[in-house]
Amino acid sequence: MTTKDKYKKVAYYPGCALEGSGHSYNRSTKAVGKALGLDLVEVKNWNCCGAMEVKNVDPKLQTYLSSRVMSVAANEMDMDVVMAPCNGCYHNLKKAEYDLKNDSESVAVVDRLSKKAGHKTYESGQVETIHALDWIKDTIGEEGLAARVKNSLSGLKIANYYGCMYTRPRHIFPEKDKGPGSESTSKPHFMDDLLAAAGAENVDFPLKTACCGGAHTLSDSDISTKLVLNILKTAKLAGADVIATECPTCHSGLEMHQIRAEKTLGEKVDIKILYFTQLLGMALGLKAKKVGVHENISDSIKFLKAKGLG
């Protein structure tokens, strides 16, 4: 089976954020999958991967939580690929995979907790975890996408923002930095590639993998606001009208602190923030509502209408 076929039907792990603040990412991911004829089967009775918090209480607890999701996909659903659109979930599943392959202590803890919890222990290698970007890029690809575009994104200037957890730390992503065709951890480009195929103009954005302070969005809001403000301003300076995102934490962080910067620092940056799946969905001819634009915090509807989208 080629990668192309293998990813056509995947176990879908939305994670907690996509059922709450990131619901529009959930909606648009499913809508894009449907429009492209890709099959998503939600992981049964899934649990939280541990997000950015549980590891600070104990890293191995996070490994266990993530491993349980993979165990359900492999042992109860007989799936061999898990697709997670959230950078946090994607990162944690990858991290768990790495630790279970390389660290015997993690294996022992996960085995012990799995047995006590009453399910099969996940063994490294049972599933492959991919991001929504890999999923579309490897099944449909740029050419396939370009051929399906009904509403070109031409005229949209986009800064692609990938954040921290999609590329760092690099040792948990052994498939990246493997030369042509693979994703780069220093200058990621999968989202750029897909949006360009849909007609958008990507601006040269130096802060693709900068941090939005998402881990402290509430516990240290001032730092988060400063970091987000820098990202927004730099994107604007680079000539972008839209920041495309691929992570619910980054996305809400940018939206929240865009407002907070205006309210607390008097700094207003007029730039739209949209999930890449929302942009792709509209390029494929879906209405703005179908991809949840109305569920975002900031209002992009008028802007998109003016560009002939949605």
Partner: peptide, 11 residues
């Protein structure tokens, strides 16, 4: 405690 866990250092 203000470290934002961005892992730029780890990288």
């Amino acid at each position: 405690w203000q470290c934002v866990s961005c892992n730029k250092c780890t990288y």
